[in-house]
């Protein structure tokens, strides 16, 4: 296998609140890699440091310790979607192209198919406040696709949507991803969503966020996200993931009020069937970011 698209080694990130003189460790000693073209879900309870991790991957925040190597440009779908209220759907989607100096004609040519893909063609001229939540989220996804990084980082993009809309968008995302060959890191707090989408699920503990386990998902591709749920293995892995999450919550509360690296409880190793990483030796990354 070729060099991983993303490689994290011992990454830590904390926030210090000077006013209350309190330090919160959001990400604790996280290491994992994502192969090229792989779809990895990061699963964890809210507040465990998932967004922090993603912001570090996106280069929006800097880790305090450890090494982050991201090969290529990463496009981001933010948790709060961040669709510009002052731009039409079409201009929102074309925004990354405009930033890079693409002319109006070129933007139109490239945005058209993406609007088609995300079912927004009829709303191309609409402003975000005229859209439903689902359409705003589609706009945000389409914008990340227009940005066209080799890596796609998605932070609970469907978290605020109803179940039906979410299923539709998940299916569409899988279709888009399979045609694109992008590497995806998809953050979610939903066990179902992780199993529906991922090749591998990284389970995070409650704060401070550590990687508890790296669980491979055995379902083949292309996936039918409905049929998937009839597979007997679906229930088994669901149980396994919930068990890990419960375990993560327990160890986290045992080590409450983290004040520094030394105060953290020892990380439990993942279960025997779930090796950390894929056993592929990492080759030197193209870009290594150190704090």
């Amino acid at each position: 296998m070729s060099a991983p698209a993303i490689d994290l080694r011992g990454v830590w990130k904390g926030f210090h609140d000077a006013r209350r003189d309190q330090t919160v460790i959001a990400v604790e000693d996280v290491s994992f890699s994502v192969g090229r073209g792989e779809f990895v879900c990061v699963l964890g309870p809210s507040g465990c440091g998932k967004s922090t991790l993603l912001r570090i991957l996106a280069g929006l925040d800097r880790q305090d310790l450890g090494e982050v190597a991201v090969k290529g440009h990463a496009s981001v779908v933010f948790q709060e979607h961040g669709v510009f209220p002052w731009l039409s759907v079409e201009d929102n989607v074309g925004y990354p192209l405009k930033v890079r100096g693409a002319g109006r004609a070129e933007r139109r040519r490239r945005v058209g198919p993406l609007l088609e893909l995300t079912g927004l063609t009829d709303f191309r001229g609409a402003y975000p406040h005229q859209l439903s939540g689902g359409m705003r989220q589609r706009t945000s996804v389409a914008r990340a696709l227009a940005d066209d990084g080799e890596i796609l980082l998605m932070d609970e993009p469907f978290g605020a949507l109803d179940e039906q809309t979410r299923l539709v968008l998940q299916q569409e995302l899988l279709r888009i991803w399979q045609d694109s060959g992008k590497s995806v890191v998809f953050i979610t707090h939903s066990v179902d969503e992780a199993l529906t989408l991922a090749d591998r699920v990284l389970v995070m503990s409650a704060r401070p966020g550590r990687i508890l386990a790296d669980v491979p998902v055995p379902f083949g591709r292309p996936r039918d996200i409905l049929e998937l749920r009839r597979d007997p293995r679906y229930g088994e892995i669901t149980y396994e993931l919930w068990r890990l999450l419960r375990q993560g919550a327990a160890t986290a509360s045992a080590g409450a009020v983290p004040t520094g690296p030394d105060a953290s409880p020892a990380s439990p190793a993942g279960p025997p069937g779930a090796p950390a990483g894929r056993g592929t030796p990492p080759s030197p990354p193209s870009e290594v970011r150190t704090p």
Partner: peptide, 24 residues
């Protein structure tokens, strides 16, 4: 978040001002 979007889209300082700060 709007400034984050600009940054992750590769917008420099001037682009960020003209495409985010000003319209916002």
């Amino acid at each position: 978040i709007y400034f984050d979007v600009a940054k992750s889209s590769g917008a420099g300082r001037w682009r960020t001002w003209s495409t985010v700060a000003l319209p916002a």
